[in-house]
């Protein structure tokens, strides 16, 4: 073990840090974009039947494709990874924001209108809070995927925990594979744990039931 740390310790810690920042930056940008887009889309609910399938189809594109294509355009710079991961992470959050808001019962909106709330107030005080469970579920899916796809950053030589896994796979070095895979797995678990805590903090118990 001490031998391992002496040999790979530095490489591992820098890989973890790189990986972590890829995820945090991508998810933050993706969340802001997806949240706003989701709200905008929810203002035109008649197009729901068109919009939803399109989002779902885009969601079937594997993250590797975004990374690959951007790599060809943008070259081997960290922004390639961040942009690719961001685009990929947008879809689940966007879909869940949109669906969450659309599914808020007319009754509540009607009641809010009756109380004299402006459309913006209705959005922020009624629709978004009620859609929150769904939005956070989307955030969780996106985050877990992003940790997963960030492994591919190494594919184009841009570091992260994937680098260790790649090196391990190509040199048949099991220690290296494990050294990359275990921290990646732990990181994913910690992120999802953090989001669970966030959900507990943000959503009253009674609203939490149906959203895993």
């Amino acid at each position: 073990m001490s031998h391992f740390i002496a040999l790979y310790g530095k490489r591992l810690s820098s890989a973890i840090i790189t990986h972590f920042w890829y995820v945090v930056i991508s998810i933050t940008i993706a969340f802001i974009i997806a949240f706003i887009l989701g709200i905008l889309l929810s203002r035109m609910p008649r197009r729901a039947n068109l919009i939803l399938p399109v989002i779902s189809v885009f969601q079937t594109i594997p993250g590797i494709v975004f990374i690959g294509l951007l790599f060809l355009y943008n070259g081997m710079v960290p922004s390639t990874v961040v942009i690719a991961l961001t685009i990929y992470a947008i879809f689940p959050i966007l879909k869940n924001t949109y669906v969450g808001i659309i599914n808020v019962s007319e009754d509540f909106k009607e009641a809010a209108k009756g109380c004299g709330m402006s459309p913006f107030q209705i959005l922020m005080k009624v629709e978004v809070p009620l859609a929150l469970p769904s939005i956070i579920t989307g955030l969780r899916i996106s985050t877990v995927y992003t940790v997963s796809w960030a492994v591919l950053a190494a594919m184009i030589g841009l570091g992260g925990l994937g680098e260790l896994i790649y090196a391990g796979v190509s040199s048949n070095n099991n220690t290296l594979i494990i050294a990359g895979a275990i921290p990646a797995a732990i990181m994913a678990l910690l992120f999802s744990l953090a989001i669970d805590l966030l959900r507990k903090a943000l959503i009253p118990k009674q609203l939490r039931r149906d959203n895993k």
Binding site: V144, S148, L152, I165, A181, I182, A185, A188
Partner: peptide, 21 residues
């Protein structure tokens, strides 16, 4: 649930250690 949270490539890497490519 934990299994699904693991990054796919990490999971495959770990299995590969036992099963080979």
């Amino acid at each position: 649930e934990v299994l699904q949270t693991m990054p796919a490539l990490a999971l495959l890497g770990i299995i590969m250690v036992f099963m080979g490519a």
